[in-house]
């Protein structure tokens, strides 16, 4: 897993990204994949709780919240705003 790349945790509020790769070795991360967090999916950071953690994401209209530390398992390619 690359440390310097963009992950879900680095997306800013209102920013969209497409998931590029998932570190699936942890069974709990696999559980998140069953919820739809897989490669090729577009995801948007919509809001966060106090202190920026956890983060609420939107994927295809459904809301899902992840903690900062877990969002790092998902590498993303940011999508330019307006797409």
């Amino acid at each position: 897993m690359k440390i310097n790349g963009y992950t879900l945790a680095t997306l800013k509020k209102g920013q969209k990204g497409i998931i590029q790769s998932v570190d699936a070795s942890d069974p709990q991360v696999q559980r998140l994949m069953v919820l739809g967090l897989v490669e090729g999916t577009e995801i948007e950071h919509t809001s966060s709780a106090i202190g920026g953690d956890p983060i609420e994401f939107r994927l295809f209209g459904c809301g899902i919240s992840l903690r900062q530390e877990d969002a790092r398992f998902f590498q993303v390619a940011p999508v330019a705003a307006g797409d």
Binding site: D26, Q28, V29, S65, L66
Partner: peptide, 9 residues
Amino acid sequence: PPFALMLPE
């Protein structure tokens, strides 16, 4: 461990 929560409309 990692944690996720579904946020319904």
